[in-house]
C-alpha cells in the first residue's frame, strides 16, 4: 500500500487537483482555498520552528503582520506591484526577525514562548497606535495589485487569477521549505530539537542556528503575510496579534508537527471549520476551543501522523 510510486504520485495528483480547483469550486470556495494556501505557508513556516527546531513560538504572526503592513504601505504610497511589495514585505519580516530573534534565542523553554508572544503583541500595539502610518485600528485598504508594472487591473483582480498566482507562490514557498528541512541545515535543526547539549559538544553554534531558523521561518511568514495583504486588499492590527499566532500554532498541532505537509492540512481544517462554524453560529470560537481541547486528548500527534498510521494498518 505504501509503495514508493504512491508516495511519488501523490504530490503530483494533489498538484493536478489544485490546478483544476477553479473548475471544481465556486468563487466563495476558491477564495477560501486561496486563503488555505496562504495560511498553509504560514503554518508550514511555523513548523520549521516548532516541529523541526523544537522552539514553540506564540508570536509567529509577527513576520506575517509586519510584512502585510510593509506590503500595504508600499502599495498605498509607492507602487502596487505584486512582486515588489512581496519583496518589501519579506525584507521587512527578515529585518524584524533578526532584531527580535537575537533576543528570543537567548531565552530558554517557556521564556522563548513568552518573548515571542510579547514581540507579536508589540507589533500589534504598534500597528494599532501608529495611526499616521498604519491607519490605526481602522487598518489600511489597498488597491488591486499588478503583476507587471504599468498594467491596468489584469490578472490579479479576479478570484481565479489570484488563485493561480497564489498557487504558484505556494508551490515555490513550500518547495523551498522542503529543501531546507531535508538539507544538512535542516538536519542540524532536528539535532537541536533532539539534543542541544550534544550539538554544542560536536561544535555547533546552537544559538546561530536557532537564529537562522527563526529568520527563515520569519521570512516565509512574511511571504505569506504579503500574499494575504494582496488577497484581502486590507490590513489591520489583528494580523500581527495573538489570535493569528495562536491560529497558526493550532494549524501546526492539528496537522502534525515536524511534517510540513501536516500544517498545510491543518490550515485547511481550521479555516474550513472557522468558515462553516462562523456562518452557522456566532459563537464559533466556543466550538473551536472545544476542538482544540479534543485534539490534545484524542489526536496528540496530529492529522498527518493519524493518516500515516491508518495507511500502515491498511
Amino acid at each position: 500500500m505504501n509503495a514508493p510510486w504512491v508516495r511519488r504520485a501523490l504530490p503530483a495528483l494533489v498538484l493536478v487537483l489544485l490546478a483544476a480547483a477553479p473548475f471544481l469550486l465556486n468563487g466563495f470556495r476558491l477564495r477560501l482555498l486561496t486563503e488555505v494556501l496562504i495560511f498553509g505557508l504560514l503554518a508550514a513556516s511555523l513548523d520549521l520552528l516548532v516541529g523541526y527546531t523544537g522552539l514553540t513560538s506564540l508570536g509567529h504572526a509577527l513576520g506575517f503582520g509586519v510584512s502585510a503592513y510593509a506590503t500595504g504601505i508600499v502599495a498605498t504610497r509607492l507602487i502596487a506591484n505584486a512582486s515588489l511589495t512581496l519583496l518589501a514585505g519579506v525584507a521587512a519580516a527578515v529585518l524584524v526577525s533578526l532584531v527580535t530573534g537575537a533576543l528570543a534565542v537567548r531565552a530558554r523553554g517557556v521564556y522563548f514562548l513568552m518573548l515571542t508572544l510579547a514581540f507579536g503583541q508589540l507589533a500589534f500595539s504598534l500597528a494599532d497606535t501608529w495611526t499616521p502610518v498604519t491607519g490605526g485600528s481602522n487598518g489600511l485598504s489597498l488597491p488591486v495589485f499588478q503583476l507587471v508594472p504599468g498594467a491596468e487591473g489584469g490578472l490579479l483582480s479576479g478570484v481565479v487569477g489570484f488563485y493561480y498566482y497564489t498557487l504558484v507562490a505556494f508551490v515555490l514557498g513550500y518547495a523551498a521549505l522542503r529543501r531546507v528541512v531535508s538539507s544538512p541545515f535542516g538536519l542540524a535543526l532536528v539535532g537541536i530539537r533532539e539534543n542541544e547539549a550534544r550539538m554544542r559538544a560536536v561544535g555547533y553554534a546552537v544559538q546561530g542556528y536557532k537564529l537562522a531558523a527563526y529568520c527563515t521561518a520569519g521570512a516565509l511568514a512574511g511571504y505569506a503575510g504579503a500574499l494575504y495583504a494582496q488577497q484581502q486588499r486590507f490590513v489591520s492590527p489583528g494580523l500581527a496579534g495573538f489570535e493569528t499566532s495562536a491560529l497558526a500554532l493550532v494549524m501546526v498541532i492539528i496537522g502534525g508537527r515536524g511534517t510540513l505537509v501536516g500544517p498545510v492540512l491543518g490550515a485547511g481544517v481550521v479555516l474550513l471549520l472557522r468558515d462553516e462554524l462562523s456562518t452557522r453560529f456566532e459563537e464559533w470560537q466556543l466550538v473551536l476551543g472545544v476542538v482544540f481541547i479534543a485534539i490534545v486528548y484524542f489526536l496528540p500527534r496530529g492529522l498527518a501522523a493519524a493518516l500515516r498510521q491508518r495507511r500502515a494498518v491498511a
Binding site: 531546507v180 544538512p184 535542516g186 538536519l187 533532539e194 555547533y204 537562522a212 527563515t216
Partner: peptide, 25 residues
C-alpha cells in the same frame, strides 16, 4: 535519529557543510 544520522550530524559540521540549506543531506 538513525545511527547513521547521529554520525552524519558530526561529520557534516566537521566538513563545513552543516550550514548548507539547499542541497539535500
Amino acid at each position: 535519529l538513525s545511527v547513521l544520522d547521529n554520525v552524519v550530524m558530526a561529520v557534516q559540521r566537521d566538513a563545513g557543510v552543516a550550514r548548507s540549506p539547499w542541497r539535500s543531506v
